[in-house]
């Protein structure tokens, strides 16, 4: 085949040319916070399901409510990204089963009641009394009812919280993974990869807070599992690309020798995954906790993973194939 010498186009549409750049920091922030909140939901509920008792530390007790604040910030970033912000309500007049964004819009709505019940049920008597005191009189009856539901259906709420966290985490990955035209996103592995990363970043945020010793130990162990899962999923993603014909091989080459190799392997794989994994092994064996640096590295790596994949994906299209 002859070498391509020159291709010119008169098209210079903003956002499209010379390569796609429609999604910026707003989507990175949303994908990061979405994963983080997914992780908090899964971990907070799973910790209680495992131990059979409510969290002891104040920070962990209030975490589901904090998570609702974080997802609200993420949704705010999403809203800022919309080109027609006043039309955001259009998401909620329609459900489109083939659109991951439509699934996501509805998952984000369902997260709120589930998180509220998870959070209310996690509160101790002192916190409940404080909240009652701050609640206007007319709403106190409703608050009492909600506390009743949160306590009475605790196991169901915990299981639902895990399910909602998993759904939120997977959808943030599939949002990109189901775009066939962006070669670097076109992998279903992105779903579980973003979930595993979300669980890891969620654990990292919790590890920054004062925790009971047993809670910290469990979180460090679970985080190590999530990190290993992430490493395996990244390897599977690259293997999937590398063994799936010309288009996939081009995608793999972007991370294996191409322009994103250095930043991806240094910021995500080494600093965001391998170094924290070694630190967690040292903590488990030698009882030497890396109180701040470990969570910070994991959180930075999780942010970098999304930033790099979002950027690299937008720079990958069929028309860029050699």
């Amino acid at each position: 085949m002859n070498a391509l010498l020159e291709a010119t186009t008169t098209r210079t549409n903003p956002g499209i040319d010379p390569s796609l750049h429609i999604w910026g920091w707003e989507i990175v922030v949303y994908l990061f916070l979405g994963g983080l909140v997914a992780g908090i939901f899964v971990l907070a509920a799973a910790l209680e399901l495992k131990s059979g008792e409510k969290p002891r530390g104040t920070a962990l007790r209030l975490m589901p409510i904090v998570a609702l604040g974080l997802i609200s910030v993420g949704m705010g970033a999403l809203w800022l990204d919309l080109a027609h912000r006043l039309w955001a309500w259009r998401f909620y007049l329609f459900f489109h089963a083939t659109s991951p964004m439509s699934w996501g819009a509805w998952i984000l709505v369902l997260i709120y009641p589930v998180g509220l019940l998870l959070g209310l049920g996690s509160m101790n008597d002192e916190q409940r009394a404080w909240l009652r005191g701050k609640t206007p009189g007319a709403l106190r009856g409703l608050l009492t009812t909600l506390f009743g539901w949160a306590d009475g259906r605790r196991r169901g709420i915990l299981v639902t919280s895990v399910a909602m966290g998993v759904a939120l985490g997977i959808y943030t990955g599939l949002l990109l993974g189901t775009m066939p035209s962006r070669i670097l996103w076109n992998s279903a592995v992105l779903g579980p990869l973003f979930l595993a990363s979300g669980i890891s970043t969620g654990a990292a945020l919790l590890l920054l807070l004062p925790l009971e010793e047993s809670e910290r130990k469990t979180l460090v162990r679970w985080d190590a599992v999530a990190i290993v899962a992430e490493l395996v999923l990244i390897a599977l993603m690259l293997l999937g690309f590398a063994t799936s014909g010309e288009v996939g091989q081009w995608a793999a080459s972007q991370f294996l020798g191409g322009p994103y190799t250095a930043v991806f392997f240094s910021c995500v794989v080494v600093l965001g995954l391998l170094v924290p994994l070694v630190m967690e092994a040292i903590e488990a064996k030698r009882h030497l906790p890396f109180a701040t640096i470990l969570p910070v590295l994991i959180l930075t790596g999780g942010l970098a993973l999304r930033w790099i994949l979002l950027t690299a994906g937008q720079h990958s299209a069929f028309r860029f194939l050699p």
């Binding site: 429609i22 999604w23 912000r85 039309w87 962006r182």
Partner: peptide
Amino acid sequence: CSGCKACIA
């Protein structure tokens, strides 16, 4: 259209 840009991607 809310301008979410999913179709563009």
